[in-house]
Design a protein around this nucleic acid. Structure first.
Lengths: 115, 115
DNA sequence: ACTGTATTTAAGCGACTTCTTAAATACGAG
DNA sequence: CTCGTATTTAAGAAGTCGCTTAAATACAGT
């Protein structure tokens, strides 16, 4: 219910169809029909996935005649990466003197329990 | 339904309670009761969150008397970061000669449409 | 064996997700 | 204004999610 930005972003990324759409958009703008082509699902289904991606701020849309081309918007991806980077030391092996850093992680996320 | 590893990981991260649990585990092992303390929810609810995190490989559990302490396992976080890193250039501004790189992204995720 | 503490399992509920088909809308072209 | 193309909205089915309470299990100490 909180629907904090990070949760919305990760939820949007938690679907292989949506990740494939982002991958496609990495090589440039595309129409809905273009984006739907690789998938064995109806057009409304793709349209709904695009709405999720748009709601997460991962894509933006313009207007050209009857087309509504989509383009990648990577800002939210950066936010997700920034969050994950907080844990980078855990897979890079140097576990020294990072306690204070980790405490800042905790205080940043601690309030989520109240939502 | 595909339940590929990346989808499972991102889905596990798409909940603020679970991210807060990971943040807590960043400072060391903890019991279920310890982990549940900050949250206004029942113990079974926390236990279920832990099961999701364990299913995603984000935590591992041991046994000590009646306690089942949890510890962070960052391998899956690294996988998520690796995926996101593919898009790093999009928020770092250098959009030159990355076409071939991006095509590799596409071929990696292209098959998701068949699932 | 009995008690208390830690944790999980089971069952159920309301909300949300992902997909479908059918119908609606938006726009350019003729 | 009608026609075809692109896309969305609407409504509904099936499954999943996050939570609850009640009951079960696991183990240590006495």
């Amino acid at each position: 219910m909180a629907a904090d930005a990070l949760s919305v972003t990760f939820k949007a990324l938690a679907d292989p169809t949506r990740r494939a759409i982002l991958a496609r958009l990495a090589s440039g703008e595309a129409s809905v029909l273009d984006l739907a082509a690789p998938f064995a699902m109806s057009l409304p289904a793709v349209s709904q996935h695009l709405k999720v991606l748009e709601g997460a701020g991962l894509i933006a849309r313009s207007r050209a005649a009857q087309w509504r081309p989509c383009r990648l918007d990577a800002a939210a991806l950066k936010d997700a990466t920034d969050w994950l980077d907080t844990y980078r030391q855990f897979w890079e092996g140097s576990f020294n003197k990072l306690d204070s850093y980790l405490k800042s992680v905790q205080s940043k996320e601690r309030d989520d329990g109240n939502a």
